[in-house]
């Protein structure tokens, strides 16, 4: 089966007063239809910029300086702006973190969804509204016909995020990039959305890139996990492999920092220091200053010392079990 999305060597830079910052550095991964990839990292790791780069939504002072973004075999990066626009929303679409910012507050839900339909398909308004209604139904919105008449402020946060996901689904894209879509929501609402998203991947076969900082969410939702640190994917594999048998010391540290796995009241194992500034990143492994396993060799950049299926960029990976 060919990948719905294949990213190869994607590199995005931002020019700042202090020099060029490589926010996304040689990032490669692929997502098969019907699978969910969890792209995990802390703030500043480049996970969101990766999502935006895939969509071609990088503005000055940012620039994608290299790599390929293959959506169903076609390289988005080789396309003209007009061709890219035809891909966005149809072959690959995006869901953002804050649904209040992504929905137009002065348009009815139905109007803005119908608009999204008619950008790509020549259908009349009534047919477009019908498509919008179907999409709302798929994401589990009760009474979708009435909801189409509502303005965004009349909906709760969870409902708005469902509308955003439904809008992303209108053209049955092969790929959906979701950038922290449940971070702003309450746990009970997050649970509902995660259940719907899992169903979308399973039933419709959409490939989903779920960008998040929340390991617990991806471990229960995603099929595969890629962990980002300082602009690079430092470890990737199936969700089971990465969570049960993390091989990069950073992934290990990240998993250990989650309170739920420890005896209450005990000190949590912590990663010393803080995430590095991307300006003036030291040579070699970007994690070495915080890493308990670092040695002299870490001054040179590590290559994949794991397998192809479970890759790890580390000179001293933890044992595979």
């Amino acid at each position: 089966m060919s990948a719905a999305l294949e990213v190869k060597g994607l590199t995005t830079q931002f020019s700042t007063r202090k020099g060029a910052v490589t926010a996304v550095n040689d990032v490669s991964f692929s997502v098969q239809p019907g699978r969910i990839l969890g792209l995990v990292g802390e703030s500043g790791s480049g996970k969101s910029v990766t999502g935006f780069s895939i969509m071609g939504l990088i503005d000055e002072p940012g620039r994608i300086i290299g790599g390929q973004v293959m959506v169903q075999g076609a390289d988005m990066r080789k396309m003209s702006t007009e061709e890219q626009r035809k891909m966005r929303g149809r072959a690959v679409s995006m869901v953002f973190q804050d649904p209040m910012m992504t929905l137009n507050p002065v348009l009815r839900v139905g109007d803005q969804m119908a608009m999204a339909v008619r950008v790509h398909d020549k259908v009349n308004k009534a047919a477009a509204w019908e498509r919008a209604r179907e999409a709302l139904e798929i994401v589990g919105i009760p009474a979708p016909r009435e909801r189409l008449q509502a303005y965004p402020h009349q909906l709760s946060g969870g409902m708005r995020q469902r509308v955003a996901i439904a809008t992303a689904l209108l053209h049955r894209p092969a790929v959906i990039i979701a950038d922290e879509p449940t971070t702003a929501l309450d746990v009970s609402i997050q649970g509902q959305i995660l259940a719907e998203v899992r169903r979308l991947a399973d039933d419709i076969g959409t490939a989903i890139v779920w960008v998040t900082h929340d390991l617990a969410v991806v471990s229960s939702l995603a099929d595969d996990i890629a962990v980002m640190y300082a602009g690079r994917i430092v470890e990737s594999g199936t969700a089971e492999q990465v969570i049960a048998n993390p091989r990069h010391p950073y992934t290990r540290g990240l998993i250990d920092s989650v309170p739920g796995l420890h005896e209450p009241g005990q000190d949590l194992p912590q990663i010393p220091g803080s995430t590095p500034q991307l300006v003036n990143l030291p040579s070699g492994c970007p994690f070495r200053s915080r890493c308990p396993r670092a040695t002299d060799i870490c001054a040179s950049f590590p290559h994949n010392t794991g397998t192809e299926a479970h890759s790890v960029l580390c000179h001293h990976p933890l044992e595979a079990t």
Binding site: M159, I189, G191, D214, A216, S219, S220, A239, L261
Partner: peptide
């Protein structure tokens, strides 16, 4: 109980979510 049921936890593998129905 429902709240505990909706929270994704690490290390339990792929979960079947049993979210609370409806809105707050």
């Amino acid at each position: 109980e429902a709240l505990f049921g909706s929270v994704p936890t690490l290390g339990t593998g792929r979960a079947r979510f049993h979210p609370i129905k409806g809105e707050i």
